[in-house]
Amino acid sequence: MKHILPQEVDQQLKEGRALSIIDVREDEEVAQGKIPGACHIPLGQLLERMNEVNKDQEHILVCRSGNRSGMACQLLESYGYRVVNMTGGMLEWTGEVEKGEGVK
């Protein structure tokens, strides 16, 4: 499984790179803030919502600490997806966050 640090993700976003970020935390966690532009698919819904994930691109998976996103990476990898786990998760994220009701 490939890994990336939160600081590396933040730097790539600041450089204007188009990244596919999938946040696998629960609704109440995401409501407190998520990485701008991240797609929210809770880990428990990932299997049934896999069709929403583009198989032709690489995805960075994010959770609170890196554990659930690691599980999500293993699941998606087993179906042939290219994924990277953001180690340290949102606990180590120092970049911008989107907050508010509209965050899904």
Rank of each mutant, 00 (worst) to 15 (best):
E48I: 10
N51H: 10
E48K: 02
N67G: 12
A31F: 13
N67I: 14
K55T: 14
I35L: 07
G33H: 09
S69E: 10
V62Q: 04
I35R: 02
N54S: 14
L61Q: 01
R49I: 01
P42E: 10
V62D: 05
I41Y: 06
R68L: 11
R68S: 11
H40L: 15
R68Q: 13
S69F: 06
V53L: 02
N67V: 14
V53N: 01
E58H: 06
G37T: 12
C39H: 09
Q45M: 14
C63L: 04
L46R: 01
N51D: 10
N67M: 13
R68G: 07
G44C: 04
M50F: 01
H40Q: 14
H59C: 06
H59K: 03
R49N: 05
G37L: 11
S69I: 08
L43Q: 07
N54E: 15
I41P: 06
G37K: 08
L43N: 07
G33Y: 11
I41A: 08
C63H: 00
S65W: 01
A38D: 05
R64K: 09
E48T: 09
V62K: 00
A38I: 02
N54Q: 14
A38V: 05
R64C: 04
E48P: 00
G37R: 09
G37A: 12
N67S: 13
S69Y: 07
L46G: 00
Q45R: 11
H40R: 12
L46T: 02
P36L: 09
K34Q: 14
K55Q: 15
C63V: 07
S69H: 06
L43S: 05
H40Y: 09
G70V: 12
Q45E: 15
L46H: 02
K55R: 14
M50Y: 01
G33I: 11
P36H: 09
E52N: 04
L47T: 12
M50R: 01
I41T: 08
V62R: 01
I35V: 14
L47F: 08
N67Y: 12
K34L: 13
I35F: 06
E58I: 08
Q45C: 08
K55N: 11
Q32M: 15
I35D: 00
H40V: 15
R68H: 11
K34N: 15
E52A: 05
Q32W: 13
S65H: 03
G37W: 09
V62M: 08
S65A: 05
R49W: 03
E48G: 02
H40K: 10
C39V: 13
P36A: 12
P42C: 13
C39Y: 06
I35W: 03
K34S: 15
H59A: 06
S65L: 02
Q32L: 15
G33N: 09
S69D: 11
S69R: 05
E52K: 01
